[in-house]
Write a protein that binds this DNA or RNA. Structure first.
Lengths: 333, 333
DNA sequence: CGCGGTTGCGCAACCGACTGCGTACTGCGA
DNA sequence: TCGCAGTACGCAGTCGGTTGCGCAACCGCG
């Protein structure tokens, strides 16, 4: 493997100094057309590519951004990652994956490491499960950052209108004649889940219907497995609701569906089921899942846009971009 | 935003030079126990993390590896990514995501870009769909590389024994009394699919059963949508098989299952169905999917091990690590 | 007391690219 | 022909680490 060609090599070949080559390559003016052409030609000829580390060292820029991600096996997370990476690619930045799932054992220092390693110019933070303590750590992250899904006041955020989304979905169930609606939430991601619960309850209240406490079940995680437990819960309930709104998301709903059918319920006859997320997966379940779709592509674009802006201008006022959800009506409700 | 702490800061605080600090941190000998302890303590206290660019500059290493990935919305890909990232994290390397899906429009130059950008020390290549042309381009990639899933002679590979896996699954179906087995393959990933077909046919042959051409259906992609088309195909067939082996994978099988039930077939009564992959998802379908599991975690470990070895020693002989699959017996067959 | 060998650490030269400042050269007008 | 403005480029330092070389202090031993 031959040594990579450096800026000095180019300089030597062009009979100038490295400084001159650097200026040409960075489009500075005050370089004669002749030398400019010569250098550009040489660079092209030898396929010169500047060394990332060297440039990063002096410019304090790496042209890559990090993304903090929970378990990728949950399809929603994978979908978010795809959306983000699709938005990032055209910008020339690259994506560095910080997998919280993979770093479970040293998570405590993850934030600090990320910021001090100096590998990234900014962070997209998609990890719903935030405790007080996490938030504290986040603040120590002196890096441009955009939070995905949550809404915090002191940092740029991208989110959907969870309350509105849940409200509309619940209204839809009501319009179908359901009067008893079970809610399947999650212990994690309190903020997001709480907003959805609020929306659902608002719809019930406006229809003058009560919400019974035992019709709320909170799963311990966002897995399909948790959905099975939820289905079991409602199966064992004396006064069963006629509809289930799985505000914990489509993947949980996937488990709910499978378990309910296992228990010989017919969907949507015995239970109407609505999910939340609008994953591709949801249309390949049986029955096809009615769900509240999040516009992930738009959200990802917004997240990247916000992040790049903040990288340019670190102390502009923080911003929250909120997107509307849309109800996808399919078979399950 | 306060400045990050550098090696020089540590040196000043410890009354030594940066060189000494560097040696301590890199575990070189010939440093007295006293100063070593003092420096280590200071580093710990101030949470010192070396600047990656600076280190990369002198060592000609970036300490990150790239991963070339197809569409993350296919759960198998997401599962692979999680496995890889879990294996990478403890090594201190970081993962740079090159999303083929996201770079669809400039895919042609992707390989060249990756190698010339110089951001990574090596590449994990997980992109089943390889044409002659892709292979050519791969060879131009003068970077340490490990190919995931495919088997190539001139590069390190990690794969499963597809033939054996398919053979055993088919035997299982035969043992359940099925004599007509439909195979659902895929146009892409010819090598992998071909091996599985071979395995399935071998099992049939050994049982003295013929394989009928119209019992093979090839999907156009690895999506659940493609699975629905496959289900339609077998639905319309005059002489239907009694079992379907979805060698194209669990996600395709997910679509197959949904569509078959939609067409009022009962699984496994009317069709026994077996998948391939062993995704988490497969146990949350209805009925729970019997499937051939790939040991992704082990495979990921092997891939990283091979890659790091090759980064150290670029011209050692290439190696292929092949893993055994295991049949997970659940309800669908 | 002097010698050779070890240990512990500083000095300074890098790695490759960028940049502020200084200077040589150019051409033009007087 | 001289002076001046402006252009074109070199010099040297910087970023944060790593590393080879060498010096000094210490050791035990004769």
């Amino acid at each position: 493997m031959q040594k990579r060609i450096t800026i000095k090599d180019l300089a030597r070949m062009a009979n100038v100094t490295a400084a001159t080559v650097s200026m040409v390559l960075n489009g500075k003016n005050s370089i004669s057309e002749a030398t400019r052409k010569k250098i550009l030609a040489l660079a092209e000829l030898h396929q010169y590519v500047p060394n990332i580390s060297a440039r990063g060292l002096v410019k304090a820029r790496t042209n890559s951004i990090g993304i903090i991600m929970p378990d990728l096996v949950e399809p929603f997370n994978a979908a978010v990652l795809r959306a983000i990476s699709t938005s990032v690619m055209p910008t020339g930045y690259r994506l560095l994956l910080y997998d919280v799932f993979a770093s479970a054992n040293w998570e405590k220092t993850l934030y600090h490491r990320i910021s001090s390693e100096g590998r990234v110019d900014g962070i997209i933070h998609k990890a719903l499960e935030m405790t007080e303590c996490d938030l504290k750590r986040l603040e120590t992250l002196q890096l441009p950052m955009v939070v995905f899904e949550n809404e915090l006041s002191w940092v740029d955020c991208v989110a959907v209108d969870n309350e509105e989304g849940a409200y509309l979905a619940t209204q839809y169930l009501l319009s179908k004649g359901h009067k008893q609606i079970g809610l399947i939430g999650c212990d994690m991601a309190s903020q997001v889940i709480a907003a959805r619960v609020t929306g659902a309850k608002r719809a019930l209240r406006e229809a003058d219907l009560p919400f019974e406490v035992q019709h709320y079940f909170s799963t311990k995680s966002f897995t399909a497995n948790a959905g099975m437990a939820a289905a079991d819960y409602f199966h064992g309930l004396p006064n069963q609701p006629t509809a289930l709104f799985v505000i914990a998301g489509d993947y949980v709903a996937c488990g709910v569906l499978a378990r309910l059918r296992k228990l010989d319920y017919e969907i949507p006859r015995d239970f109407a089921v609505i999910g939340f997320d609008g994953l591709e997966l949801s249309s390949f379940l049986y029955p096809q899942l009615t769900t509240v779709q999040q516009p992930l592509d738009k959200m990802a674009d917004a997240a990247i846009e916000l992040l790049l802006q903040r990288i340019e201008e670190r102390d502009k006022p923080t911003e929250i971009r909120k997107f509307k959800t849309s109800l996808i009506i399919r078979e399950s409700a």
